[in-house]
Every structure is written in C-alpha cells, then in structure tokens.
Design a protein around this nucleic acid. Structure first.
Lengths: 154, 154
DNA sequence: TTGTTTCCCATCAATTCCCATGTTATCCCA
DNA sequence: TGGGATAACATGGGAATTGATGGGAAACAA
C-alpha cells in the first residue's frame, strides 16, 4: 500500500523521482509506471497503480450505463488519466498541464493514502496537513472496526 | 498481540531494537517490519503491523469518499506513516522527524497495546503510566466482554 | 533545422547491509 | 540444584548499496 509523504525536486525537464516505496508498490504490473490524473476536488493530482485502475473499472462497470455519476467518473478519471512510466532511475516526466493543475513548480510532495496517492504543491500540502491533523483528532471516533466475519468464527 | 513494555537505546544512526516479542508478532507478513506514525493526540508514536494497517484501510474505505473526516484521517494515518523494516538484528531506523515528534533522544519505550503499540520518551511515559493506572482503576467496570458477531449477522 | 522527448551515465548523500561484541536469559547435565 | 554451556537479544561501527538528482547525447516530431 502507498504510505508516507515525501517531497522531491522537479528538474528543468519536468522530471521528478517517484518515492522508492511507491515504485516498489506498483512493480510487477503490466507496465513499469503509474497512472496520474487531476483531482476534480481541487488543485492536486491523484494517482495509483494498475490495481487501482482495475478497481475503478469494476466500480464503474457495476453502475448504470446512463448514470450521470458514471459518465462523470469515466471522463474525469479514465479520460483525464495519463500513464507515466519510470525512467531507469525511477523518475516520471510530469506533463505541463498536470503540473499546472496542481501548481507544481520546482518541488512536488507525494502523499501515500493506502490504495492511491496524491501529488501536491509542498506549500499547499503543508497548510492542508496541519488542519487535517486537528480534524483527524476530533473525528477519530468515526473509525469503526468493520465487523468482519472470519471463517469458522461463528 | 503486542504486550508488555520495554525500553531500548537509540544509537547515533537512529537505530533502535524492536522488542523481540513485537517482532515475532509481525513475522510472516509481506514485509519484515512495522508501520509507525506520529500520534495526532500527543507527543508519542503509534505503530502496528500489516494487519493493523489493513484494518485501518478497511475502516477508512468504509467511509463516504467525500467525508472531510475521511480525508483528514487518510492523510494523518497513511500520509504520515512510515514503513520501517528490520535489519538483520531486529532494529529499525527511526526517521528524525518521528523521533522529534515523540521527543526521543537516546532511549525509546515500546508499549504493547494489543493490536497496536506506542513508542514513548521513557520519562514522558513514566508520568503518563502513573495517571493511566489511576484512570484504569476508576474505569475497570467498563470492561465488558464483547458480543461475538455470528455468521450471517454482519 | 528546431524544439521536445527519451535514454544513458556520473555524482553525492543517505540508507542498508554485514560483521563483531557484550550481556542476559535459557538449557542441560552432573 | 548449582554451574557451565548455549542460545537469544541488544548494541556498535565500517563497508557496500540504493535513492535522488544533474547533465549530455541520441531519437523523434514538427
């Protein structure tokens, strides 16, 4: 799973190293790289590996073909996503439009969120992370253990 | 399960031995190590094995995707967590920012709490352990055996 | 050509790996 | 049950590897 946060530099060619932990998380897939698309919630990027895209595909295929939400998801995720493959040193080249959407300039912060990750402008992320911590503290009780029924545990 | 308390030294490289009982508790997972992140309740660290993180992932994925609390919890747990793998002698290397959050300097106290554990500055832990015992004494009547979830009842 | 993208190689720091050692707990046997 | 042997655990330091980054050359497109 994608965990932890790391900030790496974007060089003059638009290249940025993907954190090693993220890379190992997607290794073994059909291509050596990640999927990235602009968040439709705000100025940052969303990303994941093949497994995440497969899951989204399953979700979407389970929806009604003419569901508005389905078409929005199809267009916003599959339509907007790019496949960014790693170079020999584990870097991707960020397309300019993606960098512009997230306001990336010189540095990029990768934030692991379990099954997916986000890419932020470091300053923007700092602001958000600070308030997120306080908010998480107030809302930690919303974390409810799913009632998982184990085999034989009747 | 993580039980008992142990204090180990942190060397100049930031390495600290994880208590043997904790290590055996996470052995057999997909990677040989633990997840550690700063508590958002105070100056100590929280940790656990792969099973704990899987549970958190289930809990969080069970929340509404646009719940603000979900996003805050995602960032504060997965975004802040590190995967710390054991070296050949069962040690982890504590990143500086984590050590700073918990005020760790030279020694670290591992406190087993069942499914997860905490890492404390030894002096801070001593202070808290005293008040925790008093609190437990006052609240011992709250300890109730949980009802087991039966097959099909979930 | 001209600009862009991809590939390859070099560098430096940080991290991990490996080996050595002290110390404590456990085991075995007389 | 005492005592020695053995194994497990914690710790320290040096060497080797990995990770992030920068720049140039080659391939490609306009």
């Amino acid at each position: 799973m994608f965990v932890s946060t790391a900030t790496n530099g974007i060089d003059a060619k638009g290249r940025v190293s993907v954190p090693a932990g993220f890379r190992s998380n997607v290794s073994g897939g059909p291509f050596d790289g990640i999927y990235v698309w602009p968040s439709f919630d705000g100025p940052w990027l969303e990303g994941g590996g093949q497994a995440l895209m497969d899951d989204y595909l399953d979700m979407i295929e389970g929806m009604d073909p003419y569901d508005d939400a389905r078409q929005a998801l199809e267009q916003s995720i599959f339509g907007a996503a790019r496949t960014l493959s790693f170079d020999a040193n584990g870097r991707i080249t960020l397309p300019k439009d993606l960098a512009a959407h997230a306001g990336l300039d010189g540095k990029a912060t990768f934030v692991g969120l379990g099954r997916r990750f986000e890419i932020w402008n470091p300053e923007s992320y700092e602001k958000r992370a600070g308030s997120a911590r306080a908010f998480a503290k107030e809302n930690k009780l919303k974390l409810r253990r799913p009632r998982r029924v184990k085999e034989g545990e009747a």
